[in-house]
Design a protein around this nucleic acid. Structure first.
Lengths: 202, 202
DNA sequence: TATACTTCCTAACGCTCGTTAGCAAAAAAA
DNA sequence: TTTTTTTGCTAACGAGCGTTAGGAAGTATA
């Protein structure tokens, strides 16, 4: 019944469309009938491809978690590099994931609470691990005097906060490219953390 | 039928309880029956005090908007003060509103999309005005060379982003008082904006 | 005491929800 | 060509939703 060669599998199409709806209306306020209409289907037909509404949310949330971890690990793979450099690259990697799919990012950031147990707890554990990785990096930077902050945990939260607000205002057709945004954000956020001497080399 | 003197009006109790539920589960996923149970009532009884579910959301969102504006205007009333000082006080005022009622703040930040028109547009207009007020302050700071940033709009978004993530991690029983948090956040966020010379006087 | 107001109840309304069962047609594989 | 897989339909299920009508009991006011 499919007309031409589908660019992506039907399942992937459902995920993409659902992600956009979840972002715009929220998970709970998005109905399967709405999603089906958006895809030109009837509600029941969705279940030939997916198991449940929550399954979609699960895939989106855990898929993005994987992307964030992959970005961080690539950014900090060069363990001999200056901490400030690693942190800058981790920030830019984080921004790149956020901008590559800002709808999925918004869902990742706000809709995870609609996961039921045990997925919800698993998700939060992942998020904590990610946050801890950033914190550890900043702590090491403070220890080596490359960075300067009164409280590493506090600085980490403020840093991730700035980054994670991005999907709320980022527009793919805006005047700044994702890379420019990443660079500027890193500049501004590292500005408050860098030690004056180290700042010269950045 | 009321037992003792109610500390607050029933309506206010409903608002408070609903706010907590809206924050925890989201507006759409919170049912009136759930809210009623939390208050020891039946669902229908709520409607002796309120007109609709959305009316509660409306009150929370617009009430907080008012609080934010009041804080900003008080912080910037001394127009002859250095821009950096005004900005610091505006930041601290914002944080104080966020910490005074972090549940309502979280609802204000995330649940406004469930307002129906025209309330939704009115809300967004208010939010834009508030953001513009911050941006204007920063722009003037750049113009007088008190502040330093490549792009005022960008700096404003990053600044408010850091602040608005606060309700996500703030705990009233944490080790930092609201004032300490406000002060530290202001320190860290102004750090990236202050010109080096002006920084001495801060 | 009579009157009004506040507060809450029970019962039900029309509606939408996520999901399932059973079937059918097209596409792909054999 | 036969078989299997993919994709989609219609119809309906049980449940929960926000909300309302109408009544009753307690409290305050006159």
């Amino acid at each position: 019944m499919a007309t031409a060669a589908p660019l992506r599998s039907r399942k992937a199409q459902i995920d993409r469309t659902a992600t956009a709806l979840f972002r715009a209306r929220g998970f709970a306020a998005t109905s399967m009938r709405e999603l089906a209409t958006e895809l030109g289907l009837e509600a029941g037909s969705l279940y030939s491809h997916i198991k449940s509404k929550e399954e979609i949310l699960h895939r989106v949330c855990f898929g993005l978690a994987e992307a964030f971890f992959a970005g961080f690990e690539a950014a900090t793979a060069a363990t001999s590099a200056p901490i400030a450099t690693q942190l800058r690259q981790a920030i830019e990697a984080h921004v790149r994931v956020l901008t590559r799919d800002s709808a999925a990012s918004a869902v990742f950031l706000h809709e995870w609470r609609h996961l039921s147990e045990p997925a919800r707890s698993e998700f939060l554990a992942l998020r904590d691990r990610y946050e801890a990785a950033f914190r550890s990096l900043i702590q090491r930077g403070i220890a080596t005097a490359e960075l300067h902050a009164p409280d590493a945990a506090f600085a980490t939260l403020a840093l991730l906060a700035s980054l994670n607000w991005l999907p709320a205002w980022y527009r793919p057709d805006g005047k700044l490219t994702p890379d420019e945004i990443a660079h500027r954000l890193a500049d501004q956020l590292l500005g408050g953390l860098l030690n004056e001497r180290a700042a010269m080399s950045q």
